[in-house]
């Protein structure tokens, strides 16, 4: 009777989309405008004087920062449905298992929103393609059909750098994703801002701490540098697992009124 059901997940997703459609439409519009700014306004010189290949490279190079920032915005939305007392009552009392409710939010924030994000990039490119002839003499072809598959490939299977770098990059991205998920569960309201501030504070402390050690750079013996990257990646992956477990625990322990803790006072 308490097993998970796809039908209930479907209803939870539909409820979420119907009841928060304004917020999600705003998010879609925001992403669209962000993508439009990036691929259109940020590179006017390529639009005017250079070929499509240079324009494509410029957009492609600036896209990773946009992807990372957007991903963090999505993940910070994971527990936005628990931001007020009324919302918590509604969410916690929904007749579904904890797993179903978590899965529904996870699917929406970590699968649904990224799809919306890709649609936003494509839409922005189409708008740029349509508007360019009106503003400039020459125009450049649509790039989304090439850009999106390459972005997906680069972040999943293909990596033009070293394998170790790829491993470290993936470990770091997993760590930062779970860190923001934990931040969302912890803060719920303005989670993105608060988690970012915590992250920055943590990095400053880490840098101050590491200044006390003589860390070998890339120029030193390769083996030492490789071992350090593997160790760092492993630490990040272990931390990711810990953070994910903490996020689930925080989610399971959410109450309608929190007893005041240090993070409630922030």
């Amino acid at each position: 009777m308490n097993s998970n059901s796809l039908t209930r997940i479907k209803y939870l997703l539909l409820q979420d989309l119907s009841m928060n459609r304004k917020r999600y439409i705003s998010l879609l519009v925001g992403l669209f405008l962000g993508a439009l700014m990036l691929i259109y306004l940020a590179h006017p010189k390529y639009l005017l004087h250079d070929g499509s290949e240079r324009f494509y490279v410029a957009v492609y190079d600036s896209m990773p920062v946009f992807i990372v920032c957007t991903t963090l915005v999505f993940i910070s939305e994971l527990f936005a449905n628990f931001s007020t007392k009324q919302k918590r009552v509604h969410q916690l009392m929904l007749p579904a298992t904890k797993g179903e409710k978590f899965a529904a939010r996870f699917l929406l924030c970590c699968v649904g929103f990224p799809i919306v994000f890709l649609v936003a990039i494509a839409l922005a490119d189409v708008v740029r393609w349509i508007l360019s002839p009106l503003l400039f003499e020459n125009t450049l072809p649509l790039i989304c059909h090439k850009l999106i598959p390459e972005m997906l490939l680069k972040t999943t299977f293909y990596w033009d750098g070293e394998t170790l770098d790829h491993f470290l990059f993936c470990a770091f991205m997993t760590w930062i994703a779970t860190f923001y998920a934990m931040g969302s569960a912890l803060f719920r309201r303005r989670a993105l801002l608060k988690t970012t501030l915590c992250l920055m504070g943590g990095f400053i402390l880490l840098v101050l701490f590491l200044e006390n050690f003589d860390i070998p750079g890339e120029s030193t013996v390769d083996n030492v540098f490789d071992v350090m990257r593997v160790v760092a990646a492993c630490i990040l992956l272990v931390l990711s697992v810990v953070q994910f477990c903490l996020t689930r625990r925080l989610y399971n322990r959410i109450q309608v009124i929190s007893k005041q803790t240090w993070y409630d006072r922030i």
């Binding site: 009777m1 119907s18 009841m19 009324q86 919302k87 009552v89 509604h90 009392m93 929904l94 579904a96």
Partner: peptide
Amino acid sequence: RQLDTLQDIYILPEEFDAPKISFEK
């Protein structure tokens, strides 16, 4: 907060957020 329990409890708080959708929906 097991499913069986949640299917058997309904709380109508004094103040609640009515969503911006039709009642039918």
